[in-house]
């Protein structure tokens, strides 16, 4: 006899699910404790914020300061664009190495993905420190840091995009006897292009955000002005830097959204 009664509104979790939820809650409180989370400090912080705001406002709008900060912001965008562009270009061959079932076997794809995981595991600011040691202080170290960071990001996501693409066109070419490289070039890469554009624009946004703080470790860009502002208790100038960064990042994100829509439309 078929059961036609309404199902229960909520299903009782299994013992394993219940243990999982309980473990999640315990880990959350363990993490709060280890991170020194203090409600008392949170409640007592508004007066300190107010004190900082009082000292930082109005921001420093001296034309000479604005000109200096403006050129630093230009340098920041140059670091971001150069690093992201080189990174995106280098990510394409890396992604071909990392895409499972496309051209190479599992040894190469697994090795490449492991290397990409390592690159992503190291924060961009740490890469900047490494390149400052390797090539010296200045924006070039920042470009290299952004490049390697972009390869870690785009290499993995380009590969994921290629794995997720509709396999139909590739199968159609396989059936004609095409080689793997031909199939990748003629079916997989063109079909992945919209996803690549979208990922690349995210990489550029990410690069702009990263490049604003690389100056903290001497890798060029406007970050050094932020550090000097705080070190010298020149909070109005520091506030100007923060506001400039916010405006530029918001504009870049708006540009990125517009470009994504214009270039790939609704086809993602």
């Amino acid at each position: 006899m078929t059961d036609t009664s309404l199902p229960a509104r909520f299903e009782r979790p299994s013992a394993l699910s219940f243990l999982g939820y309980a473990a999640g809650i315990l880990i959350f409180f363990w993490a709060l404790n280890g991170a020194g989370f203090s409600l008392e400090k949170v409640l007592s912080s508004p007066p300190r914020f107010a004190d900082f705001a009082a000292r930082a406002f109005p921001p420093n709008l001296d034309p000479k300061v604005l000109e200096r900060l403006g050129w630093k912001m230009v340098e920041t965008l140059q670091i971001a664009f150069a690093g992201a562009a080189i990174g995106v270009i280098l990510s394409l061959p890396v992604a071909l190495l990392a895409t499972r079932g496309l051209i190479f076997g599992s040894v190469i794809t697994t090795t490449t993905r492991t290397v990409l995981s390592f690159i992503r595991a190291v924060p961009d600011i740490a890469w900047a420190l490494v390149f400052v040691v390797a090539v010296g202080l200045g924006p070039f170290a920042g470009v290299l840091a952004i490049t390697i960071d972009t390869i870690g990001f785009c290499g993995r996501f380009f590969a994921d995009d290629m794995e997720a693409v509709d396999k139909g066109p590739a199968e159609g070419l396989t059936a004609t006897g095409a080689r793997r490289l031909d199939i990748a070039a003629c079916a997989t890469l063109p079909a992945s292009a919209p996803a690549f554009v979208s990922t690349s624009l995210y990489a550029f946004e990410k690069a702009v955000r990263s490049s604003t703080i690389l100056g903290l470790v001497g890798a060029g860009g406007i970050g050094i002005e932020l550090k000097v502002g705080f070190d010298l208790f020149d909070y109005p100038t520091a506030m100007t830097v923060i506001l400039m960064i916010a405006v530029v990042v918001i504009l870049i994100e708006a540009f990125s959204t517009w470009a994504r829509k214009s270039i790939i439309g609704e086809q993602r």
Binding site: G168, P169, E171, G172, C186, A187, P190, A191, A193, P194, Q267
Partner: peptide, 8 residues
């Protein structure tokens, strides 16, 4: 499904 490459 034809299996053409859409953007080409």
């Amino acid at each position: 499904k034809h299996n053409l490459v859409p953007r080409l």
